Computed example of a mutant assay.
Amino acid sequence: MTQDADFLATTFVVIDFEATTPTGYPAQPVEVAALALRYRDSAWTAVGRSTSLIRPPAFAPVTPAFTDQTGLTAEQLKLAPTPADALGALDRRFRTNRRYLLVAQHAATEANLIHNQRQHCPTLARIDLLDTIPLAKHLIPGLPNYRLDTLLAHFSIQRPADRHRAYTDVDITAQVFIRLISTADDNGRVADHAQLVKLAGRTAKCNMPTQTDLFDIDD
C-alpha cells in the first residue's frame, strides 16, 4: 500500500480534540491538536504540527470531572483563544491544492466537533476522515476491544502520563496509525489507498449530499 501513488500523494493529519459536554448542547472544543504526516522515501515524516487551547462558551463550563481527566482548569481556559481564533488559525494551514485525510481514533467524535464549528474552519470541515478503529478491527481481529489504550498495549506503546490531553493523544494516535499501516503492508490485507478509504474512511458531513424533499407538494 505504501507504494500506491494516491497514498504517497496524501498528507495524513492526525487530529484530536478535548471537549466539554454541556447538557442540552453539542460538545464544545477546549483543546485541539494536529500532526501532519507524509510517507516519503520509505519512512514517515512529520510535516506540520499545531496545538491550541480553546475558550469554551459560558454554557459549557469546565467541570471537576473534566479537570480530573485532562488536568485543564477553568482558569487556564479563560485566557485561551476563542474558537474562531484557534480553529481559524488551524484552518489557514491547509492548502487547497493538496490532498488531505484527517486521522482520528473514533473519528465520529472529531467529525461532529468539526462540523459544529465549521463556520470557523470551512476548509478543515470539508476534509474527509480516516478512523483507526475499523482499520484496527480489520488488521488485528480478536482484540477484546479497540480503545486507544488497548491498541497502545497491543503495539507495546507506553501510555503517557498526560493521556487525555489533545497534544499527547495526537502523538500516540499517530504512533498507532503508523503501526497499523506497517501491519497492512506486512500482511497485505489492505492493497492500496482506495481500499484503505473504503475500509476506514468517513465522509465529512460538509461533503455529504443534501437530502431533498421526498415528495414535491404543490400548494
Rank of each mutant, 00 (worst) to 15 (best):
A80R: 00
L113R: 11
P57L: 04
L130T: 11
G48T: 05
A166W: 11
T51K: 11
A36F: 12
L53H: 05
N97W: 11
Q119T: 14
L77E: 07
K78S: 11
Y39P: 03
V62S: 01
N97A: 13
D41R: 15
I157W: 08
N116S: 04
L101F: 14
P134N: 12
A89T: 13
H120Y: 14
Y167L: 13
L129Y: 09
A89L: 07
P61K: 14
L37Q: 10
N97G: 07
R38C: 06
L124V: 09
R98I: 00
R38N: 11
L148G: 00
A108L: 14
D128N: 10
R163L: 15
A60R: 05
R98K: 14
R55I: 07
R38T: 13
Q69F: 15
A58K: 15
P61W: 13
V47H: 03
A74V: 00
A36M: 12
R118E: 08
S52Q: 03
L37C: 10
A111E: 15
V47R: 04
D131I: 06
T132N: 05
A58E: 15
R163P: 00
H154N: 06
D68E: 15
P57M: 05
L129P: 03
L135C: 10
D85S: 13
A34G: 02
V47M: 02
I127Q: 11
A84D: 08
W44Y: 14
K137M: 15
D68C: 04
T132K: 10
L53M: 09
A58S: 14
Y167Q: 08
I114S: 03
L148D: 01
A136Q: 02
Q105M: 03
P83Y: 03
F66H: 00
K78M: 12
L79C: 12
D131A: 12
R159I: 12
T132I: 02
P160G: 06
L129A: 03
G48Q: 01
L148F: 08
P57Q: 03
